[in-house]
């Protein structure tokens, strides 16, 4: 993790105050207390809620939303699209996103995004990726992602960015739909990742959430 910096960086003159209780007691992994990121000229920290009594926020505690439409998603959402967990998502932010070769996509509609999202994510609602003629946004979006439209109307994606997509949870169909829409316009499966746990898993682990400035 090349961009990872922690209190324990060798360059730092600071050593933690001696008691371990001064450190984060709820780390991400045994070697990673928290992760600092610089994305889009913004300093971000991903860490876990240090409160040992914290519970999942009420909005994400429901077990039984109606299915359909809120149905359980498969582990593999499409051929060749890697499904990832939290650590892989954080590594994606540190590597691909920080170097400008990848984007973390919150595929939910803006009302969800504006209520709180994963630090470093960009909102690209799944319905803007519908590949039909009634959607005027799909072509400019593909172009912004690095796609190139050919004279015969098809798209090529040699220089397109990698995308990691998520939505509300394993019962949320928004990011799987976004992934299928992208695949339908030829976006390479190996440039797509699916964070199946979504906001629910992220919050269940007490990981940092930001409220975007609308």
């Amino acid at each position: 993790m090349p961009h990872f910096r922690s209190l324990f960086s060798a360059a730092s003159a600071l050593i933690l105050l001696a008691s371990p209780s001064f450190a984060q007691d709820v780390w991400i992994t045994p070697d990673t207390p928290f992760v600092e990121l610089e994305l889009n000229d913004e300093f971000l920290v991903i860490e876990r809620n240090p409160d040992n009594d914290a519970v999942v926020p009420a909005a994400f505690a429901k077990t039984s939303r109606a299915c359909p439409p809120f149905c359980i998603q498969p582990l593999e959402v499409a051929d060749g699209v890697e499904t990832i967990g939290e650590l892989e998502l954080i590594a994606f932010l540190e590597n691909e996103a920080q170097s400008g070769t990848g984007l973390l996509i919150d595929a939910r509609t803006p009302n969800f995004f504006l209520a709180g999202t994963i630090p470093g994510s960009i909102n690209l609602p799944f319905n803007l990726l519908n590949a039909d003629e009634s959607n005027p946004f799909i072509e400019p979006i593909l172009a912004q992602l690095g796609g190139v439209k050919q004279s015969n109307g098809t798209w090529t994606y040699e220089n397109a960015v990698s995308l990691a997509l998520f939505c509300n949870g394993p019962w949320c169909g928004q990011s799987p739909r976004a992934i299928r829409n992208l695949l339908s316009v030829g976006y390479p499966a190996d440039k797509l990742k699916y964070y199946r746990g979504g906001m629910q898993s992220w919050l269940m682990l007490g990981l940092s959430v930001v409220v975007p400035e609308s």
Binding site: F43, I141, L145
Partner: peptide
């Protein structure tokens, strides 16, 4: 940087710095 360009869309928001638990 493409990350920045994406912000040009009205419909695309980047996560800002406001911390969720900020009172």
């Amino acid at each position: 940087m493409r990350v920045k360009n994406c912000l040009m869309f009205m419909v695309v928001f980047a996560a800002g710095s406001a911390v969720a638990d900020a009172r």
